[in-house]
């Protein structure tokens, strides 16, 4: 078996790629449960990195380490280095609030605030001390999230009144409003219908030029459609999530290095 560590670097071997987030020997525990073991991979700048693997293998857990969301779970413990622009975000002098202002997140279930569409977007900017014109900001973010035309006449209505797909785009727009570097997306389309899903995928490709995206998906076609790099996780001993392979998406899907990857993408589980 190839170990995870040996796989690292392969996708980023090309010299023209900047690494924006670099994960080394990441271990996560929930109480005594060792949920993720020795995960290492790099996230290239201005690309889409997909995390795939069977359910429960720790994809969300790894993703939530990148913006220190696991700090909110009292029993979670994170070990290892996560470098964001060469700063270890887990070191004691780093404020998780500051990390999250650079690394935004979109969740599996759309979670707009029970505020107006306008406020859903302006709120994040406001707490981040945005000084510019708020009307312009709201319009720009909604346009970027391909939602403007649908909501421009009802900006004062509640964000909860939108459809699921619109809510998810609103959540993407509100993340754009804090002007992050990296956007984490945890199965952003799993609660959406196929048309909304395609719109969000188009949106991701659009955003890739300006942002770096890490997306968790259980949908392999989606990973193949949108991502540049794919990281495949699997369940190891004691239900611990391990990284099996991290490669260029095309390579991972056509010519995987690891037998387990091949079994998974061809539908032979276990």
């Amino acid at each position: 078996m190839n170990s995870a560590i040996e796989q690292v670097g392969t996708p980023n071997a090309a010299a023209d790629v900047d690494v924006i987030v670099s994960i080394r020997d990441l271990n996560v525990f929930y109480g005594k449960f060792h949920a993720v073991g020795n995960v290492s991979f790099d996230v290239p700048k201005n690309q889409i990195t997909a995390l795939i693997g069977p359910s429960g293998c720790g994809k969300s857990t790894v993703l939530r380490c990148i913006n220190r969301m696991n700090d909110l779970i009292p029993e979670a413990r994170v070990e290892g280095r996560i470098e964001y622009h060469e700063t270890d975000i887990n070191s004691s002098n780093v404020d998780p609030v500051e990390v999250r202002r650079h690394v935004g997140m979109v969740f599996q279930k759309p979670n707009p605030f029970p505020k107006s569409i306008y406020e859903n977007i302006s709120w994040g900017a406001q707490i981040n001390g945005h000084k510019g014109n708020y009307d312009e900001l709201v319009e720009r973010c909604l346009r970027q999230a391909a939602l403007w035309d649908e909501v421009k006449d009802k900006l004062q209505e509640s964000g909860l009144a939108l459809s699921g797909g619109q809510q998810q785009r609103l959540c993407i727009a509100r993340t754009l409003a804090i002007n992050p570097d990296v956007i984490l997306m945890d199965e952003p389309c799993s609660a959406l219908d196929p048309i909304s899903t395609l719109r969000i995928e188009d949106l991701m490709r659009e955003l890739e030029r300006q942002y770096t995206i890490v997306i968790v998906t259980h949908n392999m076609q989606q990973a193949a459609r949108v991502s540049d790099q794919t990281v495949f996780f699997s369940l190891g001993e004691n239900r611990m999530g391990v990284l099996v392979e991290a490669s260029q998406t095309r390579q991972l899907f056509t010519n995987p290095n690891d037998q387990r990857t091949e079994d998974y993408i061809t539908g032979r589980f276990g």
Binding site: M69, R100, M105, F113, G124, I127, R174
Partner: peptide, 19 residues
């Protein structure tokens, strides 16, 4: 999920609680 949405935008605990 609402709290997490707030924290993910870089809000502090006070901001999430009050706002």
């Amino acid at each position: 999920a609402l709290r997490e949405g707030g924290y993910a935008l870089g809000a502090t605990k006070l901001e999430v609680s009050w706002q």
